[in-house]
Amino acid sequence: MFASHNFRSPLGRAQGLGTAKEGLHHWWAQRLTALALIPLTVWFVAAVVGLVGSGFEEFVAWLSAPCNATAMILFLGVSFHHAQLGLQVVVEDYVGHHGWRIGTIIVVKFMCYGLAALGIVSSLIVSFGV
């Protein structure tokens, strides 16, 4: 097995064996979305507490306010991004089979960003008038 590699230089053999350099971006994105979600979560809880018992018209009026629509869209987008990054780590830790791991991560990505798009589009529809 090693005999066929003997003609390659030590440098040639070592190159390409390091990290793919993509781990740092994942790590940093997870922290940055976490940081953004601290104020967004406080806003979200306060908003939901204030909306308890409100009917359809009240909810539409509330989501039509530019600041509320913006915060809701940010909360949806950042939350689903954060969820995708976190679920990916869980899958990488617990799904052993390589094919299943890649497949599950792809499904998780599609679902998270699909749901984010659905939530954001729906927010805009409500904001601009149902």
């Binding site: 909810f59 539409v60 939350s79 689903f80 969820a83 749901l115 659905l118 409500v126 149902v130």
Partner: peptide, 20 residues
């Protein structure tokens, strides 16, 4: 809780979609 919160996000999305 992180995995469970994804289910919570599904609930939130359903709320807004229902209004839309």
């Amino acid at each position: 809780t992180g995995v469970g919160l994804t289910g919570g996000m599904l609930l939130l999305t359903s709320w807004i979609v229902s209004a839309a």
